[in-house]
Design a protein around this nucleic acid. Sequence first.
DNA 1: CTGGTAACAGATGTCAAAATTTGTAACCTG
DNA 2: CAGGTTACAAATTTTGACATCTGTTACCAG
Lengths: 199, 199
Amino acid sequence: MPARTPLDANAVLAATEEILRRHGPDKATVVDVARALGVSHAAVYKHFPSKQALREAVTRRWLDRNRDALAVIAADSAAPPAQRLRTWLHAVLAVKQAKIRQDPELFAAYGILAAAHSSVATDHVADLLGQLTAIIADGAADGSLRTDDAEATARVVFNATAKFNHLAHAAEWQNPGVGAELDEVCNLLLEGLRAPTSP
Amino acid sequence: MPARTPLDANAVLAATEEILRRHGPDKATVVDVARALGVSHAAVYKHFPSKQALREAVTRRWLDRNRDALAVIAADSAAPPAQRLRTWLHAVLAVKQAKIRQDPELFAAYGILAAAHSSVATDHVADLLGQLTAIIADGAADGSLRTDDAEATARVVFNATAKFNHLAHAAEWQNPGVGAELDEVCNLLLEGLRAPTSP
DNA sequence: CTGGTAACAGATGTCAAAATTTGTAACCTG
DNA sequence: CAGGTTACAAATTTTGACATCTGTTACCAG
């Protein structure tokens, strides 16, 4: 007896996200997902080649949402690049803090993928580095930020703010002082990036 | 029958370090330590109140050795403070890289304590921050580094180099490019700390 | 009273059997 | 033939009995 609803990949994804949210990444099974959809577990394998692929697809979806939200800040040409850099770095932190509070289970799923060196994680970092590069290149273009190579400088800034963007520090992000710490690091980095007033 | 050798706390410590090194922090038991010393495990509890305390004492010992080695660099008044800052940050990384290679089990024991927010870990960080503060204060004194508050600036520099000193990044320290990355971060930070040539 | 012992209860770890899950295959059906 | 089914082998997780470990107590010797 074929299922009444055609069951497209998107429905599987939505159900998986819900199961993941409810059960957490360790306990969520594809049998659970299938049960939630009212089909046999073999049916979900028609749409995704493996459990890993399912997890990656769900995670990639919300990472992409984050990326798009941050891209708005990175591309906001109304703000001067130095200001935009600071705002963007704070936003990266804020987005992840919010996710931890709202969807700790989905965040944990991302952590698992990152630890496994999944392309989902490396691609996400590449996306963020791209946005950072764009901001710094804008600053180089209008002369407000000094850099030889916007991409290299972006990597340096990203490394110097690892405490505020790398998952390994997620536990510390609950600390109330973390925003102020980031602000102080921004101050120093922006001081270093500021084009000298007189050479 | 009392033991022939009096068994002081130091002997217990040495035996524990050996067991820890051989078995790793997960498999090392105080029964093992007692067996190595030829006493009952209750005897060990005469010298240390708990297994946790034993682990902390061993770990504190090698952290103190590291601290002392780094203090030599921090206090080397022959090198200008900016240079000393760079050398010291590289040394912090190098010391930990070396420990991971030579004594991965002891390093893992330190990781466990840090994750448990043991005072051993927080004290170690405080020690390092103290050395960093001293270097920056030296720079402020001779006018080569610009800072309002050496201690606050030390915290900022420490945060900005978290990727190269925080245990959470230990896995990444195997990567060959890590030294170069630290160097680039140092370049930017020193640029930011450099007193302006003309105000 | 310092420093050791043996004996113990409760927590924790181990290990193999049982159950569940993953992924595949062979098979329906509109 | 896209999309579903049941049936099944292999991998993984759970379970539960058992062993070991942790920390305490009561006791002993110099």
